[in-house]
Computed example of a mutant assay.
Amino acid sequence: MNFALLLFPPLLAALLAYVVRPYRVAVGWTGAWLSLVSLGSALAFAASILAGSEAPTFGPSEMLRADSLSALLMACIAGVATLALFFSPGLGRESPYDAAQLRRYHVFVNLFIFAMLLAVSANNVGIMWIAVEATTIFSAMVIPLALTKASVEASWKYILISSVGITLAFAGTVLAYFDFVALSGRTENALNWPVLLSAAPHLHPEVMRLAFVFLLVGFGTKAGIAPMHTWLPDAHSEAPSPLSAMMSGVLLAVALYAIIRWKVVVDATLGPAFSNQLLLLMGLFSLLVAAFSLVLQRNYKRMLAYSSI
């Protein structure tokens, strides 16, 4: 039940914004208040985990699961999304956007929130990958809300770079999956995290090493890790402020969540040294790029973007 309360409110808000034409202020406020339901559900998951309860699952083949890491991300996403929705355009305050633009904003922002929540609650590697890719599509529809040349260019740049990254992540996922199949055969729930983790000590180290490189570069592109961060400044500076806040605050964390999930599996195969060295190297390089880039910025949104690297 809690998973329904977590995921359905943003879907319902998106559907309402799509159906009601032209856009009405009540639609925006309804979406904002519905976000509190998702926030309450996320906090309930977190409280349950803190109380020592077993990680709840839901759906066929335990498609959804809330352990300590996913519950933390759920609470963060729902909290930031709630704040963003309550400060979104189209809630009665003066707005530079017309009714059609506001309708598009509220449809795709709520779908964006849904995709992020699904990514961190998915117990299945494939569903998580699809949800992360969906965050790109939905957020890219909102970046050029004003339809200026700069915003359209930023949106296309974001789509192209992120899609290349997510394709590399898909390649890494396929490598790891086929290595698992070669070892264990086509077992039920083969793409579920607990099943992969239990088989990880027996997987081939060479395959998993290559798979993690693909996964790190792929999801790292979405996470804004240098040198794959080049979409960040343009997308953040052109996006509406609430979307920019969600991209900085939680979207990058969703991609890092995927990397952490895979790191646990890879560490069980290779030991922690390989993944730690890669992450440390890319992390230090990202810090250097961000620090020097921040000095040169005057636009606060671009500063926010570089601070997120």
Results as ranks from 00 to 15, higher is better:
M1H: 03
L6W: 03
P9L: 12
L11W: 04
L11D: 11
L12I: 14
L15K: 00
L15Q: 01
A17C: 08
V19E: 04
V20N: 02
R21G: 11
W29E: 06
W29M: 06
G31I: 10
W33Q: 00
W33G: 02
L34N: 07
L34H: 03
L36A: 12
S38F: 08
L39C: 05
G40Q: 02
L43P: 00
F45I: 03
A46N: 04
I49Q: 14
I49Y: 09
L50F: 06
L50Y: 02
G52H: 11
P56D: 14
P56E: 13
F58C: 14
P60I: 02
M63W: 15
M63S: 15
M63G: 12
R65V: 07
A66N: 06
D67I: 06
S68F: 10
L72C: 05
L73K: 00
L73P: 02
C76G: 08
I77S: 05
A78G: 03
A81H: 03
L83D: 07
L83R: 03
A84G: 05
A84S: 10
L85E: 03
F87A: 08
S88W: 03
G90V: 03
L91W: 02
R93A: 15
R93I: 02
E94K: 08
S95E: 12
S95T: 12
S95M: 06
L102I: 00
R103E: 08
Y105W: 11
N110Q: 12
F112N: 12
F112L: 09
M116R: 03
L117M: 13
L117S: 14
A119S: 15
V120Y: 13
V120T: 12
A122S: 15
A131H: 08
V132K: 06
E133C: 04
I137T: 02
A140W: 05
V142F: 10
V142P: 14
A150G: 01
S155I: 01
W156V: 11
W156C: 04
K157L: 14
S162N: 15
T173R: 08
D179K: 01
D179N: 14
V181S: 05
V181A: 10
A182E: 12
A190Y: 12
L191P: 02
L196W: 06
L196A: 11
L197C: 05
S198K: 14
F212L: 05
L216C: 13
F219C: 09
G220S: 07
T230V: 15
T230I: 14
P233G: 13
H236E: 08
E238G: 07
P240V: 03
P240I: 02
S241Y: 04
A245M: 04
M247T: 01
M247A: 12
V250N: 01
A253T: 00
V254G: 06
V254S: 05
A255T: 01
A255R: 01
L256K: 02
I260A: 15
I260G: 11
V266M: 13
V266F: 13
D267Y: 08
D267H: 09
T269V: 12
L270N: 13
A273S: 14
A273I: 00
F274Y: 15
S275P: 04
L278I: 09
L278S: 10
M282W: 11
M282P: 01
G283R: 01
L284A: 12
F285V: 14
L287T: 00
L288K: 00
F292A: 05
V295M: 15
R298L: 10
N299M: 09
Y300L: 13
Y300K: 01
M303W: 03
L304P: 04
S307D: 10
S307E: 07
S308H: 05
